[in-house]
Simulated scan of single mutants.
Amino acid sequence: MTATDTTPTPAAPTTATANPVLRVAPASPAAAAAYFGASLAFHADVSDVAAALAADGDPGFVLLDSRSTESWDQGHVPGAVHLPTALIPEQAEQLLDKSVPVVTYCWGPGCNGATRAALALAQLGFQVKEMLGGFEYWAREGFAYETWEGPARKDADPLTAPIDADDCGC
């Protein structure tokens, strides 16, 4: 196998019954680097988005909430642009600048709305990433959000964010 070969090398089972984790062998280091590098080109996590928005100055991207108006009213990231996925084809070019990357979000990891919004924007020629975890993890990690009633914030869920640290260290 060459350094650029992306074919996984089968792992030799160490017991009569193959380890379920290694039943399908890990990819080669080169294939893994390509895959994970590509993943980072398509995704941003909630903590990184929050840090970029909290820093002084322009974060270099627009954050786009692709949910319905009812969902937006329940809670959204401060400073986000609201553009439901169904309206992207007719309104994106009036609301967004194609020279500025867009980061999409929807409800959470169980929803593919942000993915559909990112696809619609990419098809229109926008540079786009998806915020992993969506609004659910924004709120679960303890970041401030806005509702129709005003600002809100919940304590960080200890299963999603460290309680006594600024970041998770990853």
Score class of each variant (00 low, 15 high):
A18N: 06
V103W: 02
A165C: 09
R153M: 10
P20G: 11
T17Y: 06
A3T: 08
V81F: 10
G110D: 11
W72A: 07
L159H: 12
P78E: 11
D48M: 15
Y105A: 09
P84F: 10
A33S: 02
A30Y: 05
A152K: 00
D5K: 14
V77K: 06
A54M: 04
V77W: 02
D164V: 09
A118E: 07
M1G: 03
C170D: 02
V49C: 05
G110Q: 09
A16G: 08
F126R: 07
S99M: 01
F135G: 03
Q127G: 09
V128S: 04
D45V: 02
A18V: 05
A3P: 11
E93R: 14
A31I: 02
P78N: 09
A114S: 09
P101G: 02
A34F: 08
C106Q: 04
P20I: 08
V128I: 11
T104F: 13
G113T: 09
P26E: 12
L87H: 03
V128N: 12
A3I: 11
A44T: 13
G150Y: 00
C170W: 04
A41R: 12
Q91R: 15
G108T: 01
L132P: 00
L40S: 06
Q123T: 11
D58A: 14
E90P: 03
T69Q: 12
G57R: 08
F36N: 07
A114C: 02
M1D: 01
A44F: 04
P89S: 09
K129M: 09
L63M: 09
I163A: 03
G60N: 04
G110H: 10
V81P: 00
M131L: 13
L96M: 14
W138S: 01
A120F: 11
A50K: 08
P59C: 06
R153H: 03
H82R: 12
P10C: 02
C170L: 07
Y137S: 00
L64Y: 05
R153S: 10
P158S: 01
L132W: 00
R153Y: 08
T85F: 04
D167R: 01
D164G: 01
V100Y: 04
A41H: 11
T69E: 13
E146M: 13
A44R: 15
T7N: 12
A38F: 15
Q74H: 12
A25I: 04
E70D: 13
S66I: 09
A11V: 04
A52E: 13
L64H: 08
A51R: 05
A12I: 13
F61P: 01
A152F: 05
V62R: 06
S39Y: 01
E149V: 05
D56V: 15
Q123V: 02
H76E: 06
Q127K: 15
V100P: 05
L119A: 15
Q127L: 14
E70Y: 13
S99T: 11
A55D: 10
F126W: 07
L53A: 12
A16C: 00
S28G: 09
E93W: 06
